[in-house]
Amino acid sequence: MYTQGLNELAARPLAAGQENPELLRRFEARIDAEEKIEPKDWMPEAYRQTLIRQISQHAHSEIVGMLPEGNWITRAPSLLRKSILIAKVQDEGGHGAYLYSAAETLGISRAELVDQLLSGAAKYSSIFNYPTLTWADVGAIGWLVDGAAIMNQIPLCRCSYGPYSRAMIRVCKEESFHQRQGYDLMLKLARGSAAQRAIAQDALNRWWWPSLMMFGPPDTASPHTALSVRWKIKRFTNDELRQKFVDFTVPQARFLGLEIPDPALRWDAERGQHVHGEIDWSEFQDVVRGNGPCNQDRLQARRDAHESGRWVREAALAHAAKHARAAAA
C-alpha cells in the first residue's frame, strides 16, 4: 500500500527555474510524450527529491503497516485465517522491499532510508498510528485501508518514473487479494452473531475517517500538487481519489448491512456522487505530528527490530567475507 498526500507536507523542491533550461525542456517533452524516465536519465533535482520522498514514505508505510495487522496473527480465529493474514503481512513486507529498491535507483542508500524512518525524520502513512483493538479491525483494514491504497496506487502504475511505475504494477496485482480477504472477513462477521456484527460496525466506525484522511489534505491545502501532476508523478488530486473511494465504498458497506459513521453522508443525484461530511483535519495534522494513539509504539517496534537484527546483519557479512576468502585461496 500506502502513499498519502504526506509527501506534499514536506516537499521543498528546488525551483524548476534553477535547472539547465535546455535539459529541463527535453525532460518535460519526454514527460509530455508519455515516455518513462529511467534511473540514469537526466532529471530535475526537484523531480528526484519529490520521488525519493514519495517512494520512501510509501515504502516506510508498507513496513510500518505490517505492525497493526501483525498484532493479530497469533490470535486469528482459525488456521485458514492465520495463513491468509501471514500471507498478507508478508506481501506488505514485499511491497516495502520493491519500493525501497525503486527509491535506491534515485541515488539514496537503503541504510539512509531506514535511518530516516527510525530517526523520525521520514513520515509514513498516518493510518498505521491507530490501534487494532478487535479481530474485526483486520477485516476493516483490508477492506478500507487496502481499498484506499488501491485507489491511490492504480494511477501510480502510470507514474512517469519507470522503476516506481513497475513496482506499483507488481504491488497492485497483490493488493486486490488484500482488499478481498478483508471484505470477506467483514462479510462473515456481518452475517454472524449479534456480537460479531457489533465488532464489525465498531471497526467501521473507527477506521472510516482515518481511511478518508489517507488521501491526504484537501486540494485547497496541497500547494505542490501542480508540479507533481505536470511531471506525472501524480495523476489525480487527493480530493478526486477520495471521492472515488467514497463512491465505491458506500454501496459495499450497505451490502454488509453496516452504517457509515457520517450523518451528513448523502447521494447527490445531480453530481452523480456521494457527498460526505467534514473531515476533522486537526486530527490528521495531530497524528502526522506524532500524537496519534500508536506513533510511539510503531517507531519503537521498528527500532527494536532494527537493533535486535544488527548482530544477524553483521554476522552474515562476516560469514560471506570468510567464504569469499576461502574461495579465493
Binding site: 520493491y98 513497475r166 507488481r170 552474515a316 560469514h319 560471506a320
Partner: peptide, 22 residues
C-alpha cells in the same frame, strides 16, 4: 524484476525467492 540486498549470492537467491516469486 528488481533488486535485493544480501550478504552473498546464496542469500540473494533466498531473498529473491521470497520477494519476487510468492
Amino acid at each position: 524484476v528488481g533488486s535485493v540486498h544480501a550478504a552473498d549470492a546464496s542469500m540473494a537467491m533466498e531473498h529473491a525467492r521470497d520477494v519476487y516469486t510468492r
